[in-house]
Amino acid sequence: LRQRHVACLARSERGLGFSIAGGKGSTPYRAGDAGIFVSRIAEGGAAHRAGTLQVGDRVLSINGVDVTEARHDHAVSLLTAASPTIALLLEREAGGP
């Protein structure tokens, strides 16, 4: 079961505080899956403080732009754009009992 949710992050002077992996033109985060995933969350960064991202979340869109088939460098450029806030649509595998 997959759950979707939106995370809104305000960029700090240190950026957004998370890294992505995967996407076309880069090493897959999961074998056989060209999706883009949250690969790291920086301690004390914007994403960590927001508490809405988890490592392993699939990134579906960035500020309304679909990145499900995107190249890695395109997703990075969307994240590093000048916008002071970033809205992410994420998909998470629902774990637990």
Results as ranks from 00 to 15, higher is better:
Val76Trp: 11
Glu69Tyr: 10
Ala75Met: 02
Gly51Asn: 08
Pro97Ser: 12
Asn63Met: 04
Val59Gly: 03
Leu60His: 01
Val55Gly: 02
His74Asp: 15
Ala21Lys: 11
Val38Met: 00
Phe37Pro: 00
Ile41Gly: 03
Ile20Cys: 00
Leu78Cys: 05
Ser12Thr: 15
Glu69Ala: 12
Leu90Pro: 03
Glu43Trp: 07
Ala81Trp: 06
Val6Lys: 15
Ser61Gly: 09
Glu91Gly: 03
Asp73Ala: 09
Leu89Trp: 09
Arg71Pro: 08
Pro84Gly: 15
Gly45Ser: 13
Ala87Val: 12
Leu89Gly: 13
Ala94Thr: 14
Gly15Ala: 06
His74Pro: 00
Gly51Ser: 07
Ala50Gly: 08
Gly56Ile: 00
Asp57Ser: 01
Val76Lys: 12
Ala46Ile: 13
Arg58Val: 02
Ala7Thr: 11
Gly25Arg: 04
Ile36Asn: 00
Ala70Asn: 01
Gly17Phe: 03
Leu60Ser: 02
Cys8Val: 14
Ala81Pro: 06
Ser12Gly: 15
Pro97Thr: 14
Leu88Val: 08
Ala31Trp: 13
Thr68Asn: 06
Gly17Val: 01
Tyr29Trp: 13
Arg49Ala: 12
Ala34Gly: 13
Ala7Met: 07
Leu1Arg: 06
Pro97His: 12
Ser83Cys: 10
Leu60Met: 11
Ala10Glu: 13
Leu16Glu: 03
Ala10Met: 10
Ala94Pro: 14
Ile20Phe: 03
Ala42Asp: 15
Asp66Gly: 05
Arg49Asn: 12
Tyr29Val: 06
Ala47His: 05
Arg14Thr: 13
Leu1Phe: 14
Ile36Phe: 03
Leu16Trp: 11
Gln54Asn: 11
Val6Arg: 09
Leu79Ser: 00
Ala46Ser: 12
Gly95Tyr: 13
Val38Trp: 02
Leu88Asp: 00
Arg40Ala: 14
Ile20Leu: 08
Gly17Lys: 02
His48Val: 15
Ala46Met: 10
Ala50Leu: 08
His72Lys: 10
Ser83Val: 13
Leu53Thr: 02
Asp33Trp: 08
Ala81Asn: 14
Glu13Asp: 15
Arg71Trp: 11
Ser61His: 09
Gly32Trp: 05
Gly44Asn: 11
Ile41Glu: 00
Ser39Asn: 12
Asp57Thr: 02
Ala50Tyr: 09
Gly64Ile: 01
His5Cys: 10
Ala46Cys: 11
Asn63Gln: 07
Thr68Asp: 03
Arg4Thr: 10
Leu1Gln: 09
